[in-house]
Design a protein around this nucleic acid. Structure first.
Lengths: 202, 202
DNA sequence: GTGCAGTAATGCAAAAATGCAATAGTGTAA
DNA sequence: TTACACTATTGCATTTTTGCATTACTGCAC
């Protein structure tokens, strides 16, 4: 039931539909005319909701492109808690984050989204602020998992660095000349973190 | 001449004065009536510039409280380049960042700023986006220092994680019950990173 | 089915933020 | 000193974002 399309009541389903409608409209319009020349209002018209509602779902129009948003909070936190108990904190969050990215890549809109992200670097700057959700979810999951609580300095650090790894990976991938699998780039970022940021071997 | 008050021509001096005027006005008003109920317009009136000009200096009103802003870019990048050449990248940025924080703490407005930051956690969320400047400066400095360039994945990672360390430190410090020296908290964060985020010894 | 509690959607108004073009002040070199 | 290039400041229009109050709809109990 983690990310299933079926689930719960009409209410939840409607919310999912609205969110998806906004995402779809945004991606379509962005692709068509470039992100900067598309207004939130237009997205809303296309999705059939009021502009005010848009901001109940996303913090910015850029956020519509990213896989971590408010609705994924519980899911991500749960996955962290559910990791094998012998895993170290960093291992656990790494696994969850890598899975999430892999899933996003496997999604049927990834190609189009990737195109957009590569073509319009500004999208990241804004949108990545949205990663706050990911941060909170990881902290929440880790906090419970380790018994330290979400406010523990170590928990905060691990969560924040994991988010940073994603951030960096996306940026590197985005700027790369040759097409690379973003999962690979992310993996390398985590390797760097686990090494304590010592210079890469090579 | 790095951060000196005297320097260059009238132009530079005026800019510094304007920036300082905006900062001072913001801190005063924030302290007086709380950040949310102060508008950019009021800050500008007090500082004697137009609201439009405000946004030429800061990205948001929250940013006025933070020590890393656009004007510190060159300075920070330069300090990274100037670190002893045998230092590893992480060591170098750590030193620079820790110095910057220490300097901010030593500044004569720190007490008031700290008070504000502790009292209004929302300030961070917004303001920390400003850390983008710090990120760029560190990348720039490191890129040249290591000869890898600012776009190198490793350079990006080190810079981003250093910024994250600051971010985490400020948040931990902010949420701490007992008054602690923020420099100490930051130092612990960097230790964690250098350990590769393995659980703290204790 | 009716009524109620909870919450999503909306409208409206204010504030924050940005782009663009016009203006004004500074640095500089003849 | 004058003329010119550069860039900071500003005004204006537009878009983005948020807060608050109101309305509409869903889930649930009776």
């Amino acid at each position: 039931m983690t990310t299933a399309d079926e689930g719960a009541g009409l209410r939840e389903r409607k919310k999912r539909m609205t969110r998806q409608a906004l995402r779809t409209a945004a991606v379509r319009l962005f692709t068509e005319r470039g992100p900067t020349s598309v207004t939130v209002e237009e997205i809303c018209t296309e999705a059939g909701v009021s502009p005010r509602t848009f901001f109940n779902y996303f913090d910015s129009k850029e956020e519509t492109l990213l896989p971590f948003t408010r609705d994924t909070y519980e899911e991500v936190a749960g996955r962290v808690r559910a990791r094998p108990p012998q895993e170290e904190p960093l291992e656990a969050v790494r696994a969850v984050v890598e899975q999430s990215i892999a899933r996003a890549v496997a999604g049927d809109t990834w190609h189009q989204e990737a195109e957009l992200l590569r073509a319009h670097p500004q999208l990241l700057q804004r949108g990545m602020v949205a990663a706050r959700t990911l941060n909170l979810a990881l902290r929440d999951g880790l906090g419970e998992r380790t018994g330290r609580g979400a406010d523990d300095p170590y928990v905060r650090l691990v969560a924040a660095v994991a988010v940073t790894a994603v951030h960096v990976a996306v940026n590197v991938w985005q700027g790369a000349v040759e097409e690379r699998d973003i999962s690979l780039v992310l993996s390398e970022a985590f390797d760097g973190v686990e090494r304590g940021l010592t210079p890469p071997p090579e």
